[in-house]
Design a protein around this nucleic acid. Sequence first.
DNA 1: GCCAACGTTGGC
DNA 2: GCCAACGTTGGC
Length: 154
Amino acid sequence: MNYWLMKSEPEAFSIDDLRQMADQTEHWDGVRNYQARNMMRDVMKCGDLVFFYHSNCAEPGIVGIMEVVRESYPDFTAFDPDSKYYDPKSDGSNPRWFMVDIRFIRELKHTIALAELKNYPQLEGMQLLRKGNRLSILPVSAEHWAFILDQESS
DNA sequence: GCCAACGTTGGC
DNA sequence: GCCAACGTTGGC
């Protein structure tokens, strides 16, 4: 089983939005980066656990946990000319972009802020903390996952 | 709002 | 294939 971190701007789609979806489940659309796509398409599996990360906001950080409940399938928003994620180079016979379905598990008791994560030498090497990282989907090691969850109650 | 870092595009 | 220009991400 793998662990991940997925970013979303809370103004666009927050963890509260996810919790309020039917079945507390939503497709993770709009990923338009090849590295992130490849991880979703080729590596993510049902049952993988994911940190929900709020980006580009007052307090960027990890706010909750969710689970992969459907493995990759074509991102249909790329086919829709009215979608802001429309990509004319992706079509049904040869889809370029993929997505997975994600289900809410729980919110953390408090946000574990990026600024806090940066303070832990135990998280050295974590991709999220690498300078210039802009990927919206990142792998998290089992060790880092467990360590971060330990900080929730301390 | 600023800006660094990175990805993509397109001319050559 | 190179690289400049441009667009986007996202922290601050």
